Amino acid sequence: MASSEQHICTICNDDGVSNLAVSWCTECEVFLCGDCEKPHSKSRLSRNHKTMSAEDYQKLPTFIQEISSKCRDHKKKFELYCSYHVCPCCVQCVTDKHKKCQEMKTLSGVLQQVKSSASVQLLEKI
């Protein structure tokens, strides 16, 4: 299990303020305090983002918390999936490392298949 540390709002922290986070945006991968959560939920760019409470985020196993939707090498969002190398790729990865790979799929399509699989449904029941 993850530690019980309290997290600081990422947006406030960037401004040098240490407000405690109340939620985690799974898409932006940032912690939000109550003051920042409201505009985040109303913005056209982020109003459809999924969030979870900071308390629930802390309960996640560490390996889950470390999963990122962005490429470590290029800091760009993963959009594709290489079936040959069995890994997510950003657009730059395709250019740099996967030029000859024939089995590129959209990551959203792959994730949709995974989410609808019997294994995931069984895990959700458990």
Rank of each mutant, 00 (worst) to 15 (best):
M1I: 02
A2S: 13
I8F: 03
I8K: 03
C9Y: 06
C9E: 06
C9L: 10
T10M: 02
I11N: 06
D14V: 00
D14L: 04
N19G: 05
N19Y: 07
L20F: 09
A21D: 06
W24Y: 14
T26G: 08
T26S: 11
T26M: 05
E29M: 09
F31S: 01
C33W: 08
G34H: 01
K38Q: 08
H40M: 01
S41G: 06
S46Q: 11
S46D: 03
S46W: 02
R47K: 13
R47V: 00
N48E: 06
H49P: 08
K50D: 06
T51S: 09
S53P: 05
A54S: 14
A54K: 05
A54Q: 12
L60N: 13
T62S: 04
I64D: 07
E66F: 01
E66K: 15
I67P: 01
S68Y: 00
S68D: 06
C71L: 04
H74K: 09
H74L: 04
K75H: 05
K77Q: 07
Y81F: 15
C82D: 14
C82E: 11
Y84I: 09
Y84L: 13
H85M: 01
C89K: 07
C93Y: 09
K99N: 10
K100A: 15
Q102N: 14
E103S: 14
K105H: 15
T106L: 15
L107R: 08
L107M: 09
G109V: 04
G109K: 12
G109Y: 05
V110T: 15
L111K: 13
Q112M: 11
S116A: 09
A118W: 03
S119L: 09
L122S: 09
L122D: 01
E124V: 03
K125W: 07
I126M: 09
I126S: 02
